[in-house]
Design a protein around this nucleic acid. Sequence first.
RNA 1: GGGCCAUUAGCUCAGCUGGAAGAGCACCUGACUUUUAAUCAGGGUGUCGGAGGUUCGACUCCUCCAUGGCUCACCA
Length: 492
Amino acid sequence: MSEEELNELNELRKERRKKLKELKEKGIPAYSEKYERSHQVQEILNNFADFDEDTTISLAGRLMAVRSHGKASFADLADMSAEIQLYAKEDDLGVELYELFASLDIGDHIGVEGTLFKTRRGEITLWIEDFRLLAKSLRPLPEKWHGLTDVELRYRQRYVDLIVNPEVKETFITRSKIIHSMRSYLEEEDFLEVETPLMHTIAGGAAARPFVTHHNALDMELYLRIAPELYLKRLIVGGFEKVFEIGKNLRNEGISTKHNPEFTSLELYQAYADYEDMIEITENIIVQIAEEVLGNLEIEYQGEKIDLSPSWKRMTMLEAIEEEVGVDFSEVDDLAAAKELAAEYKLELEEEDSVGKIINSFFEAFVEEKLIEPTFIIDYPLAVSPLAKRKEDDEDFTERFELFIAGNEIANAFSELNDPLDQKERFEKQMQQREAGDDEAHMMDEDFIRALEYGMPPAGGLGIGIDRLIMLLTDSSSIRDVILFPHMRPEK
RNA sequence: GGGCCAUUAGCUCAGCUGGAAGAGCACCUGACUUUUAAUCAGGGUGUCGGAGGUUCGACUCCUCCAUGGCUCACCA
């Protein structure tokens, strides 16, 4: 770094650069080789009684605080597992090494060696006999008391957030456990984990605007996937009977506390099954996760107590609307009457050209947010379900459900449409809407129709929004709190 | 994209109707060999988000821009 660049640094950073230079002059490595430690901090804290005062142990971690008393100092060392107090005395380390210890900064990584004791106040402490600087920190950490609360900084510099806000680390450990529990449930049930393409020539499987990218060698536009659905169903055609994929979907839409442009979902498909089976899997999987990861089926989300104990409530969409709004849509069968109702309830419609879409709008506007306890809403209008099988006794509705908890949609599932001719007609209907300006309408996928023509067994399919589920189980109000690096605009 | 709000030291924040930029922590200097938000004495380290404007004078008022938050719309 040149003199000019150095001069632009603030005082705190200049100070640390100065110390780095001094270390170099003394021949002390500021970024040294690996350090063999004997224990993690948590093991020490849990098993203090097992260590006598002659047992030498070694730890490695980041210096989080220093309390210097002249010729002796206390400090706090944090590794991933926990924090422990260090005690360093000039008598034991010698003048030179103690001076080095005294010059350490908060944020530095060190490896320490010594024996354990308890202070007068009863705190387990490592009495240092030797230590080594492992990595010098050149930037000051946020304040120890308030930590880092500026959400912009927390998301942009998640590494700092993780260093100073322990509960953030907890959330992401829980996230990992949730996904692990989900995967082990599915493997236990003999589902095969697969990976399908992220780059699609046709963006399908959901109603959403895709990101577009360009393949140079092929000189063609590609879409980043909005859902893995159509590929997973091709695998059901191919003879896999139980498949699942946990992965990212990318949607070129608004960003909010519930939406990130890339988000993680579970999708699974089971041959010879239907949406009733999917209800069962959904409930089982979430109950297992809550039991394994939280050890509790009674959770609290943003101040609301929620009981995840089975069996969860089921209602048809029409029943839910009738209960909440008092309108019985089973009595409404023409578009004009539905539009009149929408006007009466001050629902602003855009392109709703069918009773089904208006029913769905009523549901979204008046019912969704009221569904606090886990509730399966079943039987969705055909008009908003272009990939789901029709109900046998009602042409206008499908064998589909969504699961709502705490007012949020957590899962979406249906009996998969496996009639290729019906599917083709529905794609054609979607294409018309697309041409009429609805750029979220489904695209025609000829190859998917071809696959269905070879014969797809009846199948149930299920999608779970993993980020949303994790928000619920970690009591996080924003999706950004459960995604390590949420999308942000560039700085400056 | 619309509405509302925010942006001041490394961090967390005060700064009134326009009149000499502040506190705590962190940091620096000194004292201190069981402290733990260590303590004691001294030190303010700043492009007040950016650019214009009004004014004798702007952190403060106005306009535009940037970023973020909440919210509505779209979506999961």
